Simulated scan of single mutants.
Amino acid sequence: MKYFVVDAFATSKFTGNPAAVCLLDTDLPDGELQMLAAEFNLSETAYLQRLEEGYYRLRWFTPTIEVNLCGHATLAAAHVLWAHCEVAVNSLRFKTRSGDLTANRGIDGVSLEFPLTPISSVSSAENTALHDVTGGIAAARRAGEDLLIELADEAAVQSFIPNLSLIAALPARGLIVTAMASREPRVDFVSRFFGPAAGINEDPVTGSAHCALAPYWAPRFGRNELKGRQLSARGGDVGVVIAGDKAILSGRAVTVMAGEIY
């Protein structure tokens, strides 16, 4: 079985978010898929299986669990099909746990059509738990499977020290920490993502989180086209456009390595 390691939401290697993309020739047991993801030990390992021309089954595994949605590994999967598998069509569809997703190839990179994540109020118990994680929260929201907190400014997001045990105990897949950008005029908001309960202490660039960050920040800016920057050690930029009930995520990807799984 062939595999590729791709840095997604990146324009050069060793930046953005690395994902392993495995090309399945046949079905494998879920336990083997999970053990292989643990062997790669990246935020996500994506498994691609061709169903028909331009249509693929796509699954995503962290080192410990299978997840419902992953942006960077979907971008990596589309990149592999176009860059290494001689796929000619410019629009790809993926059959996933979150329904059919679409990736489109353009001159400025890849755009992904993802479901928009609804934003809602947190419960009193969630609010208390989030204040235990950190003080000085400007706002707290439920963001689908995740919880989201806004901090005072970009510097607070950059210097945020996560208490991973408390974050792992939150009733959520992970924690999104965000603030309005202040250091780069072409960036609207910044964020970080922590998912220790899912086997990811800090995710370098989290596409799925931007499906919630877009509707959170769009009313503040009065527009539906935004740019986010994730302030992990590797860093990465995600363009996002709200189009009806969809979040259109955009970015580039770079192949770092390829090999064969025995």
Rank of each mutant, 00 (worst) to 15 (best):
5 V>M: 09
5 V>Y: 02
9 F>Q: 11
10 A>G: 12
11 T>L: 04
11 T>D: 15
12 S>K: 13
15 T>H: 03
16 G>V: 10
20 A>T: 07
25 D>T: 11
28 L>W: 08
30 D>C: 07
33 L>W: 04
33 L>F: 11
34 Q>N: 08
40 F>A: 06
41 N>K: 13
42 L>T: 00
42 L>K: 09
42 L>E: 09
42 L>N: 02
43 S>W: 09
44 E>G: 14
48 L>N: 01
49 Q>L: 12
50 R>A: 15
51 L>S: 05
56 Y>R: 01
57 R>K: 13
63 P>S: 03
65 I>L: 13
65 I>M: 09
71 G>S: 03
71 G>F: 01
72 H>W: 02
74 T>C: 12
77 A>M: 00
79 H>C: 09
79 H>K: 05
84 H>D: 10
86 E>D: 14
88 A>G: 04
88 A>R: 15
90 N>E: 08
91 S>G: 03
96 T>R: 08
102 T>F: 07
102 T>A: 07
105 R>F: 08
106 G>K: 09
109 G>V: 09
109 G>N: 05
110 V>I: 15
110 V>H: 06
113 E>I: 03
113 E>D: 14
114 F>I: 02
117 T>G: 07
118 P>F: 03
118 P>I: 06
118 P>Q: 12
120 S>P: 08
121 S>D: 15
122 V>M: 09
124 S>E: 15
126 E>G: 05
127 N>C: 11
127 N>F: 11
128 T>Q: 14
130 L>K: 04
133 V>I: 13
134 T>E: 11
134 T>W: 01
135 G>T: 09
137 I>C: 08
143 A>I: 04
146 D>T: 09
146 D>L: 02
149 I>S: 04
149 I>C: 07
151 L>P: 03
152 A>R: 05
152 A>V: 09
158 Q>Y: 02
163 N>R: 09
165 S>H: 14
165 S>C: 04
166 L>P: 01
168 A>N: 07
172 A>H: 00
173 R>A: 08
179 A>W: 03
180 M>G: 03
180 M>Q: 15
182 S>Q: 13
183 R>Q: 14
184 E>F: 04
185 P>I: 11
186 R>D: 15
190 V>Y: 03
191 S>M: 13
197 A>V: 04
198 A>C: 15
200 I>S: 02
200 I>T: 01
202 E>H: 11
202 E>F: 00
207 G>M: 09
208 S>C: 01
210 H>P: 11
211 C>V: 11
212 A>V: 10
212 A>L: 10
215 P>Q: 07
216 Y>V: 13
218 A>F: 13
227 K>C: 14
227 K>Q: 14
230 Q>E: 12
230 Q>L: 03
233 A>E: 13
234 R>G: 00
235 G>T: 07
236 G>R: 06
240 V>S: 05
240 V>F: 01
241 V>H: 13
242 I>H: 12
243 A>N: 15
248 I>Y: 10
249 L>D: 04
249 L>E: 10
250 S>E: 11
254 V>Y: 04
255 T>L: 05
256 V>N: 12
257 M>Y: 08
259 G>F: 12
259 G>H: 12
259 G>M: 12
262 Y>D: 14
